[in-house]
Design a protein around this nucleic acid. Sequence first.
DNA 1: TCGCGGCAAGCTGTATACAATGATGTTGAA
DNA 2: TTCAACATCATTGTATACAGCTTGCCGCGA
Lengths: 240, 240
Amino acid sequence: MNFASDSSRRDKRGLRTDERIHGAIYAAIINHQLHPATPLQEDALAGAFGVSRTIIRKVLQRLAHEKLVVITPNKGARVARPTTEEGRQVFEARHTVESEIVRKVARRHDDRGLERLRAIAAEEMKAQVARDKRRRVQLSGDFHRALADLADNAVLAGFVQELVSRTSLIIALYEVPGAVPCSCDEHSEIIDALAAGDEALAIDRMSHHLRHIESQVDLSQTAGGVDFRSLFAPATGEDG
Amino acid sequence: MNFASDSSRRDKRGLRTDERIHGAIYAAIINHQLHPATPLQEDALAGAFGVSRTIIRKVLQRLAHEKLVVITPNKGARVARPTTEEGRQVFEARHTVESEIVRKVARRHDDRGLERLRAIAAEEMKAQVARDKRRRVQLSGDFHRALADLADNAVLAGFVQELVSRTSLIIALYEVPGAVPCSCDEHSEIIDALAAGDEALAIDRMSHHLRHIESQVDLSQTAGGVDFRSLFAPATGEDG
DNA sequence: TCGCGGCAAGCTGTATACAATGATGTTGAA
DNA sequence: TTCAACATCATTGTATACAGCTTGCCGCGA
């Protein structure tokens, strides 16, 4: 039962080169170390990771498919810069998919799984006390992913994975300055409802939680790339 | 507003080489010209399309992201061979996502959009009369994609696109021989409910329609790759 | 005859060289 | 001085060469 039996080149953690590099860039984007619209030049990345552009291109294409990077032909890759409209759509999709996830988990009564969720929630509480924002954000994503994994549907879990990642970018761009960071016992309350098998309550709490996250970003801006047209519009009296 | 203004190499239809090749292989898989598990050798494809392996690898990786192809490290690419469990999950995800799509479209009253759907349904009827099965399958997919496009959410529409493609593979593998092909006025009935703005009815009909499609495949088999682990498990008395 | 080990062929993995494209700055003429 | 055409440079796009992995074949020995 040795899954590492295939002897292709891997690092100590059993990751192939391209997976390792993907993970590194992915994490940097999610952690807001690489900001939206940052150019990702192939040569520079190749140098940084000590590989050729071939590998970097492969990784960038994967990230593009995951919507974290945008590749413009003949011009290169940048960290994605989702528009407010895209943000709206991502949150709407999260409502759709994660409500269903919660419904399914509530019906399953998987105690082992719920324990895992509680462990993550506990870590989150610690990070909150320690005021470690980066870790909180990381763990919050982990919670949603772990919850999705309990729903016994890899397809839906994959969707959640993508949506959670994209949410990171949206928060990076549109988080309102004084936002109260998501009180993380919302997660605990969801777990409680799941443990009680109260499907309707659990869904309700998840909905509320997602609305809460959404309330901490301002998607009312016309932004997502400055619109010079309207910014420098001649004062024709038409624009208020 | 000339979107074709960038002068990078494109064919007559404005497609870049890799997009053209992706489309060709994609179509071949969806149309069941390339069956599940068919090996996709890089050199052979490169020769067939008159390009180098570089392009082919890019295309294969994209198809792998779309779950239509499986790449095994050091062994190459094959057309994906979804398991019955995967099939179950894809249908479940379709229920989740497409129900929401229908809900949103029912609320929008987009007459132009509904006309487009009716046009597709009409074409389907023609194909049914002509007993052109390939075209029917193609158009059926078009219907679901077009419907998704009306929901004003590119994220959800993207999910539907992926799910519809994967459904093609599942049908290729598990369609029961004597299946009555989906009577395509189910599509028309959905459109009617949407036109009437009857949200609940439209969702109900979509659910019914998806169940109908699912009923035409047999996902009860243990197939999709034999599980040697359980098949040859030592008889420790634990397995019943 | 069977089993084991090494060799060879075929394929994928990666690096690199070269071609093509886009951005920028410069020159020259109106 | 302004604008356009051109030259240059940085960067991406594609092909190809070579290295490494996997697998099947063949021969050797028991």
